[in-house]
Simulated assay, not measured.
Amino acid sequence: MARERKNSVRQSIVETASRLFYKQGYTSTGINQIIAESGVVKSTLYTTFRSKEEILMAYLESEGAVSDKELKEATEKVNDPKEKVLAVFDYLVELVQQKEYYGCHFLNVVSEVTKEDEAIRTQIKKQKNNVRQLFRQLLQPIGKGDLTDEIYTLFEGALAGNKVHDDVFPVINAKKIAEKLLK
């Protein structure tokens, strides 16, 4: 029973912080706001997490798992190996057009932290390397494994371009370039 409550409190803190970090940014979100909106008392928050950075790490781990799952599911909607790669870009097209889309969780955070924030940057690199690995897995069976980093760079560039322009065109254009590379 105590373990369930602890997990419930932890989940509440992470969900609240995740929403706030994503919508208003990591540095703009204060511990007091997380406490107020999650409904936990300060002492409970600090027995669950030692710091705001620990909460951020839990957020990044959680969002990384969700992102990996959704990207994999997008590729499973089609059978043709080349179409699987393009399905990742189709997923991005849908994602960036959602009303509550505020950019890539990981690019948002990495733009707010310094190079000295090694643990955070390592966690972000881990998630981004999972995306690279997904492209590698999709490209190798069709003899295009050498394009892994090029396709990955298109993916990341599409996310950055979307963030700058708040428009879907960078993702659509990245998909068009990926199609040309896969011919």
Rank of each mutant, 00 (worst) to 15 (best):
H105G: 00
K126F: 09
V113N: 01
I124A: 13
I120G: 02
Y101K: 07
K125F: 13
Q98F: 05
K126H: 14
R121F: 00
C104W: 01
V109I: 12
I120Y: 03
V109N: 08
G103Q: 10
K128R: 12
F89I: 05
A119V: 13
K84S: 10
K125V: 14
K99M: 02
V113D: 01
V93H: 01
V96A: 04
F89K: 07
D90E: 13
D90C: 01
N108L: 08
D117R: 04
E112Y: 10
N79S: 12
Q123N: 08
F106H: 12
T75A: 11
T75K: 10
L86P: 06
N79D: 12
E118G: 01
E83C: 02
L107T: 11
E112I: 07
S111I: 01
E112G: 09
L95T: 14
V78Y: 10
N108K: 14
K72R: 13
N79C: 05
G103R: 15
T75S: 10
T75G: 11
I120L: 09
K128L: 14
T114R: 03
T75I: 13
E112R: 05
K77M: 11
K99S: 13
E83Q: 15
A74C: 10
L86H: 06
V88S: 06
Y102D: 04
H105A: 08
R121T: 02
Y102E: 09
N108Q: 10
A119D: 11
D117W: 02
V88M: 09
T122E: 15
V93I: 10
K126P: 01
V109C: 06
E100L: 01
S111K: 09
K126W: 07
D80M: 02
A119G: 07
A119L: 13
K82A: 15
E73C: 02
C104N: 15
F89C: 04
F106W: 07
K128D: 15
Q97F: 01
I120V: 15
R121A: 00
V96Y: 06
E100D: 15
K126D: 12
S111T: 10
K77D: 04
G103P: 12
V93P: 00
K125M: 12
E83N: 07
E83V: 02
V109W: 04
V78E: 08
K72V: 11
N108G: 06
